[in-house]
């Protein structure tokens, strides 16, 4: 952080210009490394427990294909629109950036809505977090991802407000860039959830 202004680098993209920004972006990558370890642990837990269904339903009996497909579609698209937002930012177009961020946010909210619906549906079928080890690990793994997405939505709202207040500055650009890293990461995690939890669960 020291010497922030000294090391201002005009040649870099806006989000990398200050020393502080470069440090923050690197730190966030490392944080994502920790998040990988966190989700890896949750996946390992799920894989260990997923056939231990006790007296509750199995994955095959439970999972709803339709909701999950819609969720997947929404989240993957949002990752794409998030990329478009950063693309617009690199071209220096605030309005394009804001539009795509907003679209991303709405798609994310759509994802969460469907996920909540899916969970409510399971609970109505009597499949709760308390029913079996399989369901505990399912709800905690998928729920942790969902909580991350919700947090990301809140975070994006804050950044949109700051963009409206302050415009595109090295600082706001950095924030957009970091939230986009976070968003893409959640997308990758979802792909693993989709294959390891849902697809595998519907086959085995």
């Amino acid at each position: 952080m020291a010497e922030a202004a000294h090391r201002y680098d005009e040649t870099m993209p806006l989000e990398y210009r200050t020393q502080e920004s470069r440090l923050n972006i690197l730190g966030f990558w490392i944080f994502l490394g920790a998040e990988v370890a966190l989700f890896a642990t949750l996946f390992a837990t799920y894989l260990v427990l997923f056939q231990r269904t006790g007296s509750g339903p199995t994955a095959k009996e439970l999972f709803e294909v339709k909701d999950v497909l819609i969720e997947t579609l929404l989240l993957l698209t949002s990752s794409f629109t998030c990329g478009l937002a950063v693309f617009e930012m690199r071209r220096g177009r605030l309005s394009g950036l804001l539009t795509w961020l907003l679209v991303t946010l709405l798609l994310g909210a759509g994802f969460i809505t469907f996920e909540i619906r899916e969970f409510i549906h399971y609970v109505h079928e009597g499949a709760t977090m308390q029913t079996s080890a399989f369901l505990s690990s399912f709800f905690v793994l998928v729920g942790t991802h969902g909580a991350h997405v919700s947090l990301g939505i809140g975070w994006m709202i804050l950044i949109i407000i700051q963009l409206l207040q302050r415009g595109l500055t090295p600082r706001t650009a950095r924030k957009v860039f970091i939230v986009s890293l976070y968003w893409h990461f959640l997308d990758v995690v979802w792909i693993f959830i989709f294959t390891l939890v849902y697809l595998t669960g519907m086959v085995i």
């Binding site: 837990t45 427990l49 006790g54």
Partner: peptide, 12 residues
């Protein structure tokens, strides 16, 4: 009341 490490309902 989840069942991660319990003795029943599949916990381990």
């Amino acid at each position: 009341g989840t069942q991660f490490f319990t003795m029943a309902n599949g916990g381990m």
